[in-house]
Measured scan of single mutants.
Amino acid sequence: MAAGGDHGSPDSYRSPLASRYASPEMCFVFSDRYKFRTWRQLWLWLAEAEQTLGLPITDEQIQEMKSNLENIDFKMAAEEEKRLRHDVMAHVHTFGHCCPKAAGIIHLGATSCYVGDNTDLIILRNALDLLLPKLARVISRLADFAKERASLPTLGFTHFQPAQLTTVGKRCCLWIQDLCMDLQNLKRVRDDLRFRGVKGTTGTQASFLQLFEGDDHKVEQLDKMVTEKAGFKRAFIITGQTYTRKVDIEVLSVLASLGASVHKICTDIRLLANLKEMEEPFEKQQIGSSAMPYKRNPMRSERCCSLARHLMTLVMDPLQTASVQWFERTLDDSANRRICLAEAFLTADTILNTLQNISEGLVVYPKVIERRIRQELPFMATENIIMAMVKAGGSRQDCHEKIRVLSQQAASVVKQEGGDNDLIERIQVDAYFSPIHSQLDHLLDPSSFTGRASQQVQRFLEEEVYPLLKPYESVMKVKAELCL
């Protein structure tokens, strides 16, 4: 049975990233139509530049190519590739079939990587351009969430054990800070992308030097003109047959890092959902379990974690691919890159769409948070109580021993009897502590235990987050809708 299948058929496997999760716009960027249309555009740009620099290419040939950029006979191309065992030459023939007058000058002087690699770089750039505003929107939604809850005390956790208090907004800023680093890295790697350009079979530009009869300047002009037509500021000066596969490492490393950030955020949300302090959106008709109707599973956060793990592992592909590119190139890269580049971007696209949807509907339960604080705060307040007693004339050592005994009794009630923490009640009825009984409410005010959390939130948002989001103001209103 021949390899390949009808990918629109229910009898043929289709990647869930495309069929179930990723956005239509990201799927289109990695589609065959987008790819092969870009090949034709690159052939047109090459012909236009070659004509401008004096090669015998007519206006009629150029116009014929322009008129057929979208006229792609995919069936013919597939048949040609089956016959020739070469995808680029299959599309040269297919393009030439609908451009008979231009057929002889299509791909003039070029090698397969002229269309293959340059198209990949265009796709990487455009895919990054799709991700950047999506990530900015996630940051914006979380920034709104953090600002609104900047002063809401909550129990902090280290080692997932109760620690000092923080605020809900401050905790959210930990998430935002990681995503801001990801946004900066995505922008950097996007701006650092260079075009492969017009380089020939081993990167020496020998074929173009021959076409222009040894004119170095025209060869350099050709490279520059096509690079500018493709919208790049610069091209690699040095290439082998391909652009260095280190570029793929750079791009997928940034995406993998984004995956790590999203995994951490969504894990926190899942843990908070278990504590009943916070939940992701839950639709009115949504079913959490087929057997347990009360369940409210954090399905979206779980999906993000599941896909983020996949995204983090994909960076190993370009690392290994770059390491086995012998001399000017081997074909070890080809099949692998067809999979890992598309999957990385479709996965990143999915987790950003999902995280935006989550961040637009996060639900906080202040009463649950308050109750958990009441359970733990008495123990945390013991040092403040000791200091207040010393100020009232008591002995630190005597007070410490009193607190120690009462704390152990209260802990026994919590752990052995399943009761509430009654340390404060014990202190309130103990005559030894009568000098500070009137101060206990103040000493137990949760806001006095959150330090500068709310001020940190305000400063972080104003100095770091809002300036970073400013270039994306025009796209901030787009909502994230999930079908599944």
Rank of each mutant, 00 (worst) to 15 (best):
S412V: 14
T347F: 15
L69W: 02
K224T: 13
Y466G: 10
Y243S: 07
G197N: 15
D268A: 00
S31R: 04
T202A: 13
Y34V: 04
T58I: 04
T354S: 11
G169T: 02
R234Y: 12
K82D: 07
N353M: 14
C266L: 04
R194G: 11
L179W: 07
L352Q: 09
Q161G: 01
I351K: 03
E473T: 07
P298M: 04
R14P: 11
S434N: 05
C305S: 08
I424R: 08
V88Q: 15
T382S: 13
S334T: 01
A392D: 14
K101R: 04
E376V: 13
E70T: 14
G109I: 13
P133K: 04
K284C: 04
T450F: 06
S67F: 00
A480C: 13
R83P: 08
D248F: 02
E360S: 00
W39G: 05
A392F: 13
G203L: 03
A381F: 15
H442M: 04
M76Y: 13
T450H: 09
L319H: 14
A256P: 15
L211S: 07
S289E: 15
P467I: 15
H107E: 01
L222D: 01
Q375E: 15
L319I: 01
A291I: 13
R337C: 05
A431E: 15
R337P: 07
R234M: 15
N68S: 02
D6T: 08
G109K: 06
D182Q: 08
Y365T: 09
R404V: 02
H93E: 05
L130T: 14
A273G: 09
A22N: 12
V405T: 02
T347C: 14
P467H: 07
A77M: 14
G96I: 15
R303Q: 14
H442R: 02
S454D: 06
Q409L: 11
C172W: 04
E70K: 15
K199H: 05
F145W: 11
D32K: 13
H91Q: 08
K295M: 03
I427S: 15
L444T: 00
V198I: 12
P56D: 11
N384S: 13
L469G: 08
C99T: 13
I139A: 08
S395Y: 10
T58K: 08
A77K: 05
M380G: 06
D6I: 03
C180M: 04
L468V: 00
F232D: 01
P467C: 06
